[in-house]
Design a protein around this nucleic acid. Structure first.
Lengths: 140, 140
DNA sequence: GTCCTTGCAAAGTCTTTGCAACGTG
DNA sequence: CACGTTGCAAAGACTTTGCAAGGAC
């Protein structure tokens, strides 16, 4: 289920990842898993409250951590004060507008990296994080 | 002065970047600027105290921020709990051992990225951060 | 009913800041 | 001596956790 959005789809996704589908988790899952997006814990909390989802901040944090651990979300750290949870699980890279804080996805097959050095033979690459930071106009 | 190490060299480097060379700043500069390395604020604080450099934590934080602002250091954020200050100012990429937390440099001219999309014409790229995360052996 | 989850508040971690004392030129 | 810098402790931002109440199966 790529981007589960209905209660039923989210419930199924959670179960298939060994997560019991409580009311809060399903509600949060519907908000964050339903499409590719990047949200901070606080943004999700605000979004939930705006939709009258009754949930505490602690549960938002715990749920995001749980979802990440179980592979439903990826964490993206752009700078020290911007930790996002990314519902796009496909390999991809990020474009970060340093002026606005906007974070957008780059399609993985557009970019390629060559020249990755050999690692020790017992090492394996867990991931390659690429963030292109840019700003617009004469800003510096 | 690539990697200033003596008191005199560090003093000159600070001055040339508009930083008054106080005792604490010179001492910290000698510790972090003298060779390519990655240090956290806390690691630098500990290193300073180990060398009997009398400095407070607040000053270490303030100094690192100042050095970064003035272009003497780069910040590298690997994950949420690892913010390093990097004294290597050349373009380069990072190899991060997720098991040990070890961060090593990759020579820029070994790696190349192709397929960077066109950005709006008034945009300019501030930097491309590439971190290859890996771990060794069967760890997962 | 048992075990897991939630929410609150407290605790933790890391970093910045207010302010008086101090240092530097 | 004027101004910038330091150090302490307090404040802040963000995240985790202890624990009692509540919920799921």
């Amino acid at each position: 289920m790529p981007y589960p959005s209905s209660t039923r789809e989210v419930t199924a996704t959670l179960k298939s990842h060994g997560i019991s589908p409580t009311r809060q988790r399903v509600a949060l899952g519907r908000l964050i898993l339903s499409r590719p997006q990047h949200l901070t814990a606080d943004a999700l909390y605000d979004m939930a409250r705006a939709r009258n989802v009754q949930v505490s901040r602690a549960t938002v944090y715990n749920t995001l951590r749980l979802f990440s651990t179980r592979g439903l979300l990826n964490e993206v750290v752009i700078d020290d004060n911007a930790k996002y949870f990314d519902s796009n699980l496909q390999p991809h890279q990020h474009l970060f507008n340093t002026a606005t804080g906007e974070l957008t996805d780059l399609d993985s097959n557009k970019l390629s990296v060559t020249g990755i050095p050999k690692l020790p033979r017992n090492a394996h690459i867990e991931g390659i994080d690429i963030v292109i930071r840019y700003s617009e106009s004469a800003k510096r």
